[in-house]
Design a protein around this nucleic acid. Structure first.
Length: 645
RNA sequence: GCUGGAAUAACUCAGUCGGUAGAGUACCUCACUCGUAAUGAGGAAGUCGUGGGUUCAAGUCCCAUUUCCAGCUCCA
């Protein structure tokens, strides 16, 4: 007999040789039906696992991430089985479960199109209906290689070859299909209910662009059709917020073929929003000890050679001229660091001068690869709320904390704070060519940063290989409507560039030292931040950010003069206001203003004109009735002042 | 850069087997002068992304190229 302790603490004795599924059944048929995998002594395992000794067991269902993962991982195997049935020559690569679904990478002889996907999905449904039992078995490394060679699966062979000689490998078989897999998996294909293949994409074998590009098929799976439909609906809804679509519809920006990729045109409304953000950021920074610099957009290659950009970032720069032929070669700046350092170097600095906080609204140019541009999120020219802060070691933590607090203040004001996560981006010591500095320097920089982050109790994930070439970063990450994560804000500690540029200060004991440099942004780059604001608010911005805050809608031509008078009064008070002078019915004008997502509509007609009033309609709450113009002005000014959302 | 998809009026899109370029919205004109999400009538608007090719004939087929979209890789 063995003793099984359950999550609640209850323990029960079972015969040797019973599987976890049997145990679940013993507890209740209901549990056996809904559980997908189990956690045994802290390890996620199959339900087919037979405990050999006493163990603690926690059954995992759809409500657990691991349960969903097992479910969708089985779906990915069913996809692979369907692919092998319909395209027997396709080669299998890998196929994991991911956050909202699964994918599987294949090498096909011919491209797969949408109708192939439909056919594959139909085949998957057939396999599910067949309710094929899934069996697990193990092989030695040598046997595994032999089997996959016989099956003609070169990618699987390569995966197995990378494992240690004495490894024992687990396989899962479902009827005519068999795959190398660590598991866990469901008991049979019939456990799956609602599956959907979504789209195909290219993906490099092992994520390395030097390798062959495989075809990745993405799909998702849910235990109920209604849940699948709800998910697909939700995706559809999210896409309506896509800044790249909405931003164009709302006339915030556009692109033009002849200007080129990654070079958006900010239209008046988008440019206005950027100006509002920029003024807000600069004023806030300057009120918190920052000073401004204004530095050139380009420099000779000499500067980038000192900073290391020439060796480590040349592909990312726009370069004019040729080192071989031309006396001087220039490059547009991809970062502001080496430029702002020149301001520091302008004279000898004392320890009393520190910290020095240099802010700049800085336009940068990066020659991104052509396929990488995306709306306003990834562009070739962008403007960032840049800053470099030079300080002494004893000031570092406090200054870092202040930079972080400023970033958080900005995110909270914009309403994005609840959507972000932290990433501590470290170097990859196995890829040291990408970075400057020594192992010791990196260890020191990262340890310093780790200490500060732990002390400030920042809940971060570590990103290996995500560091800048000169130092570690704290990245504040955010996801767009497609679930793709990007860095919105970054705060970095740099001990290397000060030395390279000969930046020093004279300490209290008369010795010369290199300052620490914090590279940071307070709101990120305006283009990307604007993109995320568009998606966050679906274009219905808080009043303080809205490019048009008030739209005046005269009932008929008779009240146009009064409308103009109201416009002048509001405009003089700093409100961004427009009048709809068109000769249209009021319902029509309201509809248009509502679709433009203007926060307030002021309807003016006979009554309003007589009483110096306006009939207020809020975008959010609809008709709010008439009020004196002055009262409305006071209210909206209060709302703008407090940056209410 | 790579894989796949797309590009037709200002916008959203239709255009079958290769045979005279279509709709709705927006825009302009006229009438209506209107009270909280679309008044009616009329008009103008397209080198079918660009450049080649096949054909008696190309929006449609082929090649190249630019841009856009999704993903990969890369990145703020």
């Amino acid at each position: 007999m063995i003793k099984i302790t359950l999550k609640g603490g209850d323990a029960k004795e079972f015969e040797q040789g019973v599987s976890l599924l049997d145990i679940a059944k013993d507890i209740s048929e209901g549990l056996a039906r809904v559980c997908l995998a189990a956690e045994m002594d802290g390890k996620v395992v199959d339900l087919r696992t037979v405990p050999e000794t006493d163990a603690s067991v926690n059954f995992l269902t759809w409500d657990n991430e691991e349960g969903r993962s097992a479910y969708r991982h089985t779906a990915s195997h069913v996809l692979a089985q369907a692919v092998k049935r319909i395209f027997p020559t396709a080669k299998l690569a890998i196929g994991p479960a991911i956050e909202n679904g699964f994918y599987y990478d294949f090498e096909f002889e011919n491209p797969v199109n949408a109708s192939d996907l439909e056919q594959l999905e139909a085949e998957m449904k057939k396999i599910i209906k067949e309710d094929i039992a899934i069996e697990r078995f193990t092989l030695s490394r040598a046997e595994a290689i032999k089997m996959m060679e016989e099956k003609g699966e070169p990618y699987k062979v390569e995966l197995i070859q990378d494992l240690p000689e004495d490894a024992e490998l687990s396989f899962y078989r479902q009827g005519d299909f068999c795959d190398l897999c660590a598991g866990p998996h469901l008991m049979s294909t019939g456990k799956l209910k609602a599956v959907k293949l979504q789209y195909t994409a290219g993906a490099y074998w092992r994520g390395d662009e030097k390798n062959k590009m495989l075809t990745r098929i993405y799909g998702t799976a849910f235990p109920k059709k209604s849940e699948l439909d709800a998910y697909l609906e939700q995706l559809e809804e999210a896409r309506k917020r896509d800044h790249n679509k909405l931003g164009r519809e709302l006339e915030l920006f556009t692109t033009v073929d002849s200007i080129g990729q990654g070079l958006p045109i900010m239209l008046p409304k988008g440019a206005k929003m950027m100006q509002i953000l920029q003024r807000f950021v600069e004023d806030h920074e300057d009120a918190n000890g920052w000073v401004r610099t204004k530095t050139p957009y380009m420099a000779k290659s000499d500067l980038y050679k000192i900073s290391g950009h020439w060796d480590h970032y040349q592909d990312g720069m726009f370069i004019f001229g040729d080192e071989e032929k031309d006396k001087e070669v220039f490059a547009l700046r991809p970062m502001t660091c080496p430029f702002q350092y020149q301001a520091y170097l302008n004279r000898m600095r004392s320890y009393r001068d520190l910290p020095l906080r240099y802010g700049e609204t800085s336009t940068l140019f990066r020659n991104e690869a052509s396929g990488e541009m995306h709306g306003l999120i990834r562009v070739r020219q962008f403007t960032i709320s840049e800053g470099h802060l030079m300080c002494r070691p004893d000031q570092l933590e406090e200054e870092f904390k202040n930079c972080l607090e400023m970033a958080i203040y900005m995110l909270k004001t914009l309403g994005l704070y609840e959507d972000v996560s932290y990433r501590f981006s470290q170097w990859d010591p196995n890829d040291s060519d990408k970075y400057i500095g020594t192992v010791e320097q990196w260890d020191e920089a990262q340890n310093t940063m780790a200490k500060i982050l732990d002390h400030l109790e920042i809940p971060y994930k570590v990103g290996i290989g995500e560091a800048a070439f000169y130092g570690p970063k704290l990245d504040i990450q955010i996801k767009n409507v497609f679930g793709k994560e990007d860095t919105l804000i970054t705060i970095q500690i740099d001990q290397m560039l000060a030395e390279k540029f000969g930046m020093e200060y004279v300490d209290s004991d008369g010795s010369k030292k290199n300052p620490y440099i914090i590279h940071r942004t307070s709101i990120g780059c305006y283009e990307r931040t604007l993109a995320l604001l568009i998606e966050k608010y679906a274009g219905a911005f808080p009043t303080w950010l809205a490019p048009v805050q008030v739209k005046i809608l005269p009932i008929s031509e008779h009240y146009m003069d009064y409308a103009e008078q109201v416009e002048k009064e509001l405009s003089a008070a700093g409100i961004r206001v427009e009048v709809d002078y068109r000769n249209e019915k009021i319902g029509y004008k309201i509809r248009e203003a509502q679709l433009e997502k203007v926060p307030y509509m002021l309807i003016v007609g006979e009554k309003e004109q007589a009483e110096n009033a306006v009939a207020v309609r809020s975008r959010k709450e609809g008709d709010k009735g008439a009020m004196k113009l002055n009262d409305f002005l006071a209210e909206i000014q209060e709302e703008i002042e407090t940056k209410a959302r």
